[in-house]
Design a protein around this nucleic acid. Structure first.
Lengths: 365, 365
DNA sequence: GTGAAAGCGCTAACAG
DNA sequence: CTGTTAGCGCTTTCAC
């Protein structure tokens, strides 16, 4: 790397600074002869334009932030977050964007991070993971008017741009599958009570049960926190209620729960059937043959970045909402005979058709 | 957020731009009276200095990059990486640094990321995860002369600044523990052959065995790839060799291997004892009572960032090396009677004393 | 202790 | 198609 400037390259090429700038920015108004000459010099010298100067002049940094609030533990505890991060990083690479990661562990982190994010000239926009209702960080960030997209349905009532998967229908599909298979005592292991994901997946469960005329037995429902151990622990209690099937709000909790089932000397799916939620790639889960609801995580990352770029380019109003579909992946743990019916579909392409765009009413944010 | 500039604040406070700049940068040459007045105005207006302008003028961005090469799968497959990321993010928060994440999935990502990193005015420096020997990205980044610190012992021979944990002695401790307990057929499940981590932990195993006069039985050694499933798969093969103890290069592989043991109808530790490696916090592992080598991951992140800041401030030469110690955490799977002897120690403080600094010879890089 | 002035390296009208 | 000219918003000597 050299410490050359635009000026130097211009001199070397015998042209003006603007011309060099034009070739760098792929402006068509440059003759081919000049373009190739300049390009060669840039190549030879290893020149790279200075990012800060560029950002200052163009008012664009081509950097976006990913904010994961209060995730001290769940960033590793729940494989969803590394996958989400990877998906977004992938999308950033493909859009020549640089990704900044803001992991907010505690209140003091929040104090330090907020000003960094709301400072102009650092980020073009941010992706903010939806957190619990009382999450002050989300509010503060939104107030700062930096273009942003919330990942997951936000709990606060303001009209925001967000992207989410259809958790209600995903959960409903899972539970309906269990109902269709004839299970009578279908339990549920939920995620943390205060997250929108949990609220929506609970609703899916209730909807499916009600619509098929089932009575809800609250003793078959237990709250976990998206960790393997929480699944293990709450299942030990649930077992006394003799469920014959469990819908778990995440694969990792299902795995923990199945561990408890096995330790109790019972079999999956003979004694207790399972449907999980996530179906993230590369999970050791695959060995268990876990029936689950597939989340289009890579696609989610791509769409989230696209949505944010749209907000950056065309303004934060009107707020845009994007809901992606899910898919039931039938494997072993649900006890279906028709194993593999859907199990070889797992790529994002399958979900292209399932996504829908809803433009929110054009109201003030 | 407002779109105020330094100039505006200066006008509002009836002082010059320079003075406002001084109070923002905590320059002592400002009278208290003026300082408080300016501070109040900044507070009231919600002014934030423009990052790009600041970076351009000061030639410092206060941003560092974390580069994880070729980690398409292992970023989630191996919980080490999310933990590492978290540790580094934590350290960045505490140093008012912004963290940019570069996940390199494939060769084309590499082409896109390299210029972004080597461009001046974007990053003050980078942290690069040590990869396989043939990793061209590391080489290219090093050539670009951006200040950098390698995470893990680099395989290339150039004299680089890096930080690592003492894998040889960690592994040796693990194997010695097994030897001390009287196991006769001690096997090993290694990580991917071409990583320095694997090379060093293998050496630890060989050292321990040789020093106690054991003969190495190569059929008791199998190569995994740091995934749970690889542990499971290679253990199925190893079982035919009747090992009575296994040293696994990661906890997650140990878990996979134990799953294979259980499925074969055998008991841990009665039939096969286990010692893992990592002891990362919040792992479901804790339920298994896995005896393991504790890695000071949070401390590692903190020290890595400190090291990089030192390189940024004082130049890349001489190369600095920092090696952190590990600790054996005895739980259930090794079969020791003295369970829990060390198991309540797991905080980074324990390792303060164990770290050592080695300043490399002041040679050309 | 404070202000004036000169950049930092680039983009983007505006002429020509 | 190309060059000239202003800035972008801040830091940093250098005077006073």
């Amino acid at each position: 790397m050299s410490d050359l400037t635009l000026e130097d390259i211009a001199k070397l090429a015998g042209v003006s600074r603007s011309t060099v700038s034009r070739v760098i920015n792929e402006n068509p108004n440059v003759s081919n002869k000049v373009r190739t000459r300049v390009l060669k010099i840039i190549q030879n010298t290893g020149y790279h334009p200075n990012a800060a100067a560029r950002s200052l002049a163009s008012q664009r940094t081509h950097m976006i932030g990913l904010v994961l609030p209060r995730t001290t533990s769940s960033f590793f505890t729940d494989p969803y977050f590394p996958h989400l991060t990877q998906g977004i990083a992938f999308a950033c690479n493909n859009n020549d964007l640089t990704l900044s990661l803001f992991l907010v562990g505690n209140r003091s982190d929040e104090e330090k991070i907020t000003p960094r994010i709301s400072r102009r000239g650092l980020l073009d926009g941010t992706l903010i993971q939806s957190g619990p209702l009382d999450d002050s960080l989300v509010k503060r960030l939104i107030e700062s008017k930096v273009p942003c997209v919330v990942l997951g349905r936000p709990l606060i009532k303001q009209s925001l741009s967000f992207i989410d998967v259809d958790n209600v229908s995903g959960a409903k599909t899972a539970v309906n599958h269990l109902i269709r298979l004839g299970y009578q005592r279908i339990g549920m292991i939920t995620g943390s009570r205060n997250s929108s994901v949990t609220i929506d997946r609970r609703k899916g469960y209730f909807d499916a049960m009600h619509e098929t005329g089932r009575v809800i037995d609250e003793s078959l429902i237990a709250e976990g926190d998206f960790t393997e151990s929480s699944g293990y622990i709450v299942m030990q209690t649930l077992l006394s209620q003799k469920p014959d099937a469990i819908f778990a709000h995440s694969d990792i909790m299902a795995i923990g729960a199945m561990r408890a089932v096995h330790e109790a000397g019972l079999q999956v799916p003979q004694d207790v059937a399972f449907v999980g939620y996530d179906d993230l790639p590369n999970l050791s889960v695959s060995n268990f043959g876990l029936t689950t609801i597939h989340q289009p995580i890579t696609h989610f990352g791509i769409k989230a970045v696209e949505l944010l770029m749209d907000v950056i380019d065309h303004g934060i109003k009107p707020a845009r909402q994007l809901i992606l579909g899910t898919e039931l992946v039938i494997r072993d743990t649900c006890g279906t005979k028709y194993r593999g019916m859907l199990s070889d579909k797992g790529t994002e392409q399958d979900f292209q058709g399932a996504l829908s765009i809803i433009n929110a009413a054009k109201q003030e944010v």
